[in-house]
Design a protein around this nucleic acid. Sequence first.
DNA 1: CTAGGGTTAG
Length: 757
Amino acid sequence: MIRALSASNQSKFLFLLLRPQNPITNSSSLRLCTTPTSQSPYPGSDDSLITEALQLLQSSQDEWNKTDRLRCLLSSASSPPSVSIQITRRLPSSSLALRFFDYLRESSPSLDTALLSSTFQAVLELASREPDAQTKLPELFNTSKEHNLPLTINAATLLMRCFWSFGMVDESLAVFNELDPFLRNTHVRNVLIGLLLKSGRLHDALHVLDEMLQPEAEWKPDEITADIVFSSLLRRERSRGSMGEEDIVELVLKFGEHGVSPNSVWLTKLIAGLTRNGKIARAWDLLNEMMKMGAKVEVASCNALLTALGRHSEFKKMNGLMEKMKEMDIQPDVVTFGILINHSCKYRRVDEALEVFERMNGGKESDAISVRPDVIIYNTLIDGFCKVGRQQEGLGLVERMRSQTGCAPNTVTYNCLIDGFAKAGEIEKARELFDQMIKEGVLPNVITLNTVVDGMCRHGRISAAVNFFNEMQSFGLKGNATTYTVLINAFCNVNNIDKALELFDQMLTKRCPPDAIVYYTLISGLSQAGRLDDASSIASKAKEAGYGLDVVCYNTLIGGFCRKNDIHRAFEMIKEMEEVGVKPDSVTYNSLISFFSKSGNLRTVHRMLKKMIKDGLVPTVVTYGAIIESYCIKGKVDEAMTVFEDMCSASKVPPNTVIYNILINALCKNNDIEQALFLMDQMKLKRVRPNTTTYNAMFKCLKEKKWLEKAFELMDGMIEQACNPDYITMEILTEWLSAVGETHKLRRFVQGFQVQA
DNA sequence: CTAGGGTTAG
């Protein structure tokens, strides 16, 4: 009879019947019972009916058949399918439930599909909670197919979820495909899409979703669909086979056509993701589209975009977005202001930051927004002031902060202040602040420790820094890799390599594992100090620890080997780079070119240059500098000048001070003072600032030529540009000027006054 | 919102 019904009629019928709390009851079956429905022995309630049925079912099975009582009870129910489900659910096992199901199926003369489907659903529910569910459920699924019994929606979702949990995703998909098309509603699809996505079956999930996204789709996506899809697609670790942001945006827009949009969290994540991959414009588009579609865009999403614009210093666009937010009536929150303030501070525009801060505090305008600044806002602002050397104003803000209830300075506040004073060399004040925070009960952390240690190191107080570190360690405040980096770097800078190595060993004994930066710092320090064997050995240890060397690190080593005239080992490094797949960059080539330039091997220089260009690298000002110098060394200053002119005109590489110094130095040595002066003029024209080295070369030459007036001119130039003389300058000028009786001019010069009145 | 490093030409 069921088979005689057309598929869609049957399913529509079922669908109506199986909806929860559906008033339609009393289908055509169970008419064998003599008790008419209207004379139910349990009017108004099915509870006692269920109790009696359960008692009956748990007696011996023979009893069931002997009596019509069971069918009678069911037929008197207000809703037989619903009552049957409740009865079956309370049976002790799925096997007993299945026997009840079989009883109903065999004893009903006319098959009541709704009743049977509901009962079967309860059988599945019981089976799913039993230990051998993994074998039972597939069997039961087969049973349903054999009997051509349509599953209810709940049965289908239950099976799909269970199969998924057993890792049988294909079976989940089969359940969906077996399900009558009319029952494949949004809910079922949501469940299916969710578990397909959880199994990494993106393609299958998108196929199901795609049907829903068609303009004429019968089952359209809802908020839950969007939540399932976007939460999965925008998960943190979405690497394998996941969708690109571009495709996700497309999807969002398609959802939008159905009036559904991802919630604020997912939209914000998507925008953040887009911006992280440099697709800021796309993020803007998306936000605009959402607004156009009337989706409610929350301030968090705008903040994500605002952050990205800030990172790319798109100041105008940030303002544009703020305007747009105003237009759309999206109120900025404390995070919005934090972004604006942070952005201004990063660009050292602290006064602008302060203006924003005042604006959020109400301000005077009529349309002022009042958002209470929090600790983060204050800290950002304080850090901003400290970073531009206005620590005192930072302290002033702390006072303002204290006056606001519930806004006390915390560890970060103190860290910012301590860093400000320490970097400015006010170590005593930094220490004072440290003591103050302890007194106030604000706990210092490892950043506080490192800030103090760094400040001391920067101002030549390395042993004080070590002492402070030890003191803190005895108080239980442990250092980390950063602490050691700071100290190792400090010792390398004063050429105390042994101390640096000792600290490195200490890290291992104190179980503070070095990170990549520690290794790189040490490799650099050792290379600079000419201890290439030690540097190589640390490099090996870095690699053992899993920190592969990067191009800069290799460059450090290669530069060191070149300076040691060990070109052989420099090339060994190049070979290693090739093996591990680190591409040499222009700095790598520059080191080699510079080496061959100095050793006068011009042919190799040109070979290197060719290879460099073949590798897709562009010669830089340093490359030209090495080549120019190689000609100068050979005394071919004219050729050096030709290369220099090529560099400026054909290659459009702007010259810098070093390049001019190389040339001026060579010209002066050749006594070609006119040409050297010509280059000096050119520097002025091109706004390349001469430095002490430039002036020293000139003075040496002018002294030879006894061009006193020109020398005075240049001395005034130095004063003007605040270019300080060094001991070489003083040596030349003292000798020369005292010999010609012009010491008073020298005195004026040293005091910083113009020489020519 | 706070702390650390490195390369080339003089």
